[in-house]
Design a protein around this nucleic acid. Structure first.
Ligand SMILES: [Mn+2]
Ligand SMILES: [Mn+2]
Ligand SMILES: [Zn+2]
Ligand SMILES: [Zn+2]
Lengths: 144, 144
DNA sequence: TTGCTTGTTGCGAAGGTTCGCATCAAAGGA
DNA sequence: TCCTTTGATGCGAACCTTCGCAACAAGCAA
């Protein structure tokens, strides 16, 4: 729902400058609903211009995360993944043994997150992060 | 409570070999109750012997994590942290803006984790991970 | 439009982590 | 005890991410 323009406006309102690089990066990540790595984002931007550097991509993503416009997390594949709030609130269950990723709805944990917000005054939104553990199949296949 | 010996036995029972390097690494991380980085662990081991390499430290830590004997997570300082279950179950609230870390008790979220275990058959233990968000101070100081 | 201020970029280097491979040695059997 | 098998180690290279700094340009005011 919030379009690129909204993200850029928020950055500008926070006193950051709007550069062509930032515009392109925001457009890519906001329009693509899924998770992307920094490298993927750079390749997409490269399709439009050569004037982009991986360090700038990381710095822009940091900016978005720091300002709550994107989430950053670990899918256990060696690369960090990024997504805007378009991607929707949910949690990833990542198996520490086989690496499988199960997406679960926010509802399954929102009560606890609300509790944390109340008690500790800590804003967990956007609800989009990973919990690492052991999936059923892996648990079954372990004698322990 | 579980001593180094228990960890090593579990590894052996899973078919892994017990090497001097693994013994030393397990001893360091099990006895030191706090979080440690791979680099810290290697330095501690180096105090006893020179026969240790950072790649071996990482591989051993991966092994412990994969087998549920240690947890690995991101404290937002650029390094990955590791700890055994001696460190106890709890969750870290990491502020995405100022980097502050608040430790909260497992109770505040265990109901949801139990629910996840029931519904998805996914074992979240040991309960020791981070949730990234925005602390009260940072939220207050943002006009938004 | 022009010039100034200062945040941003690109680049190369450094830091942290993983990988491939030859060598080594733990574990188990003879 | 000695040998064999095969998993583990050390090392260097590669990969991902961050950092420092000089050059650049967005935004603003005149
Ligand atoms: Mn997701
Ligand atoms: Mn902890
Ligand atoms: Zn699994
Ligand atoms: Zn904060």
């Amino acid at each position: 729902m919030p379009h690129c323009h909204t993200y850029l406006k928020k950055l500008r309102d926070h006193g950051y400058r709007i550069t062509p690089q930032r515009e392109m990066i925001v457009q890519i990540i906001a329009h693509c609903g899924r998770h992307m790595s920094a490298e993927e984002i750079m390749e997409k931007v490269r399709e439009k211009t050569t004037s982009i550097n991986i360090a700038t991509v990381y710095r822009t993503l940091d900016l978005l995360v720091e300002n709550g416009l994107a989430s950053r997390f670990d899918l256990g594949n060696g690369k960090t993944a990024y997504a805007t709030s378009e991607h929707g609130p949910h949690i990833h269950l990542v198996c520490r043994h086989c690496g499988s990723v199960t997406e679960i709805t926010e509802n399954d944990i929102s009560a606890s997150l609300d509790r944390i917000e109340d008690i500790y005054d800590f804003d967990c939104r956007p609800y989009h992060f990973s919990i690492h553990g052991l999936c059923r199949d892996c648990r079954d296949s372990m004698t322990d």
